[in-house]
């Protein structure tokens, strides 16, 4: 899966879809990191609206981008999280980093 991306000023949105596992995470990581390095956005939105499945590889993917954006002085927001992925996201401790959009929160990426 090659994710669709959108750059709006200094905000980069990556639209993930399908299954996120150890196999598919590699490509997503490559595409996203190349864009972060090239565009140096101050905000990165990871949009999960079209994701059907994710295992802990998805957590590694979010954590890795979180660290990378910190390095560049930016931040990450995970948005449009399907209900069936909430449990694994919350199990990860990602909630404590304030990167997960809360359930019912109006998506910041929808403008």
């Amino acid at each position: 899966m090659i994710p669709k991306t959108k750059l709006d000023g200094n905000e980069l949105t990556v639209y993930l879809s399908g299954d996120i596992d150890h196999h598919t995470a590699r490509k997503i990581r490559e595409v996203t990191d190349a864009l972060i390095q090239e565009k140096k956005p101050s905000r990165l939105f990871l949009n999960f609206a079209a994701v059907n499945f994710m295992d802990s590889s998805g957590i590694g993917l979010i954590m890795g981008r979180y660290r990378m954006m910190l390095l560049f002085g930016g931040s990450v927001r995970v948005v449009s999280i399907p209900e069936n992925l909430r449990r694994i996201m919350e199990l990860s401790g990602l909630g404590g980093l304030n990167v997960l959009e809360r359930s019912g929160e109006l998506s910041e990426s929808v403008k």
Partner: peptide
């Protein structure tokens, strides 16, 4: 280096 979160067994136990 593979960006493994170290949560494989925790997820298996939880699920």
């Amino acid at each position: 280096e593979e960006e493994r979160a170290g949560l494989g067994f925790a997820v298996m136990q939880s699920f």
